[in-house]
Simulated assay, not measured.
Amino acid sequence: MYVVRDIFRLQFGHYKDVKALLKEVQGKDFIPNAKSMRMLTDFTGDSYRLVFEAEFDSLASYEKGLQSGMGEKDWQKWYEQFKKHVISSYREILKTEI
């Protein structure tokens, strides 16, 4: 099992706008192969952070989900709006051992 975390550092004061954007995509299956997915927020440190965390059976399943979800026009349109609120981002891919 793999855990993928996409961590976004949001611009100061933009969380409410991002939260509204996240409500727009609730229930949409942008990453269809994820076994589970959740959103975490962190209001400490340098700036606001938003973390998308998803679990996948394999890296191949993760890649397949990216290709199908990110290729959708609805996702691309949504992401154009979302990234206006992001200062920086990075990704962690972790393998569960137990």
Rank of each mutant, 00 (worst) to 15 (best):
D57W: 01
F12P: 11
H85E: 07
F82N: 07
L22N: 11
E24V: 14
V4D: 00
A54D: 03
I7R: 02
M39Y: 15
M70P: 03
Q26M: 12
V25H: 10
N33F: 13
G13F: 08
S47I: 03
Y62Q: 04
D6V: 09
Q11V: 11
L94I: 09
R91W: 05
K73P: 01
H14T: 15
Q81N: 07
F8T: 05
E80I: 05
Y48K: 12
L59W: 01
V3Y: 02
I98E: 04
S61R: 03
S68F: 02
S58W: 00
A20Y: 11
Y62K: 02
A60F: 02
T96G: 05
K95G: 01
A60I: 01
K95H: 06
S61Y: 00
F12L: 10
K73C: 00
D17T: 10
M39H: 12
K73E: 07
T44K: 15
K95C: 04
Q81L: 08
K83V: 14
D74L: 09
Q76E: 11
K19M: 14
Q76C: 05
M37N: 12
F52M: 10
F82C: 08
K84N: 05
L40G: 11
Y79W: 12
K64D: 05
Q81M: 06
S68M: 06
G13H: 11
I87D: 08
K35S: 10
V3L: 07
Q11M: 09
R49N: 08
A20I: 10
F30I: 13
Q11L: 10
S68G: 00
E55Y: 03
A60D: 05
E80S: 06
W78G: 06
G71F: 01
F8D: 04
F30Y: 15
K83D: 03
L94R: 07
E80Y: 04
S47Q: 08
Y2G: 00
G27A: 09
N33D: 14
F56V: 02
I7M: 05
S88M: 04
F12K: 12
M39P: 03
K28A: 14
S36A: 13
W78V: 08
S47M: 05
Y90H: 13
G69I: 06
N33R: 13
R5V: 03
H85F: 10
D57F: 02
K35V: 08
E24K: 15
Q81W: 02
V18W: 02
V4E: 00
G65L: 00
F8I: 08
Y62P: 00
F30G: 14
K83S: 09
T96Y: 04
V4N: 00
I31H: 11
S68E: 12
Y2L: 07
L94S: 06
M70V: 06
L94D: 02
K95S: 04
I93A: 02
